[in-house]
Design a protein around this nucleic acid. Structure first.
Lengths: 216, 216
DNA sequence: GTGATTAGCGAACGATCGGTAGGTTAAGCT
DNA sequence: AGCTTAACCTACCGATCGTTCGCTAATCAC
């Protein structure tokens, strides 16, 4: 039925597969991906789908890499023009939260990390690599912020990074599990307090409304 | 081979099944539970296992209920003798973090919530019910703390509950994904700052070492 | 133009999934 | 003592899983 396509069409087919695979894996999980249903929804045969990857495990790794690339384009590069340090971190997280809300599905990599934490193999390695890259990014910006005086010297950067992760995970869970539309605002409020001398945690005052309302 | 047992032995078999099911589901996930391997590891037949529940879905719900009961015994009841309000909340979270660390597996219910967030049905209902019960517990203690003056009046309790959840999730991820043994200490430090006038988030000072080192 | 390459298909494979049927045997009520 | 109930077994069911095997046909290198 479908003979050989040109190299351009072949690449397009591959991305078509990965797009749908990432979408379904985001909602149902990375292990719940089945080649049969994937092929059916693509109008292809199972062999045609797996021919691009050879193995389901390889497909899963490719899905993770696709998600990492999406994250980079949507979050990291958009925050690149912000000033290094706390400002860039706030921008990056703002973009991230908006990214989570767009598909109403939270962060794929966060969910995948929780799904594969106890399943060693190349898939988990790819996920852990993505997490390590992100925490390295955060760490570098935090050190820049400390050097520039935006954060007081002597700041416990490990603890601060831990707290930032907490804000991200709480936002992700609120979106994913509870579908709470106020989650990004809450997450940004927590971040502003941690990074920028925002309001005290117990104050009901909104603090920096320009930051909190930006792009949401 | 194995004829009918007494009602006592039958109940024991049931809990034996649920114990192993909860253990494997904690590490591998609730959907990755298979009746066949469960039966094999129990030295039983598949029919013998599923005969207690009728359906895999019913078994999954029973596993969730077992986890909730374990959580209650390990966390809530142990914190019941602490003074209501912030003190009890700190105790409960301290117990919770210790509970996560014991099996080096994090919190089962947190992982299950992330796994079933997009799979409607009785299993997800049971998980969401457990989450709602916990957040109701937290909410009640926070209101007590506000009424008693332990928290300043006008505190945004929703935001505070959100931040507490963030500390819990960050601790859980650090244990589950990274196996970080310092995670409980970090989580408690975040909690102490949020609840009890602990050290500022940027200070490297440990603050209340008696709390941070308690039972860890 | 010609030959090697390859995307994708149809069909089938062994394995495993959740679940069922029927038989066996002891427990528990009367 | 007799009868019903139920826990557990073996065996099997249809469905689906990931993967493999030829095969076709169009593209690409020469």
């Amino acid at each position: 039925m479908s003979p050989r396509k040109s190299v351009l069409e072949t690449a397009a087919t591959r991305t078509r597969i990965l797009d749908l695979a990432l979408e379904t894996a985001t909602s149902t999980g990375l292990e719940a991906l089945t080649i049969g249903t994937l092929a059916a929804e693509l109008g292809m045969s199972k062999a045609g789908v797996i021919g691009h990857f050879g193995t389901k495990e390889t497909l899963q790794v490719a899905v993770v890499e696709t998600a990492v690339e999406r994250f980079r384009q949507r979050v990291t590069t958009r925050a690149a023009d912000a000033a290094p340090g706390t400002e860039r971190l706030l921008r990056a997280h703002t973009e991230w939260f908006a990214f989570m809300t767009e598909k109403h599905a939270g962060c794929f990599l966060t969910a995948a990390a929780s799904e594969f934490d106890a399943r060693p193999g190349p898939v988990r390695d790819a996920i852990l690599g993505a997490l390590a890259a992100w925490s390295g990014y955060v760490r570098a910006e935090l050190e820049t912020a400390t050097a520039s005086g935006a954060l007081p010297r002597g700041t416990d950067l490990d603890q601060l990074a831990f707290d930032l992760t907490g804000a991200v995970l709480a936002t992700d869970q609120a979106i994913r599990v509870h579908g709470d539309p106020r989650a990004p605002a809450r997450g940004l409020r927590a971040l502003a307090r941690l990074l920028g001398g925002g309001p005290a945690p117990r104050s009901q005052d909104l603090g920096h409304p320009d930051v909190l309302d930006a792009g949401l």
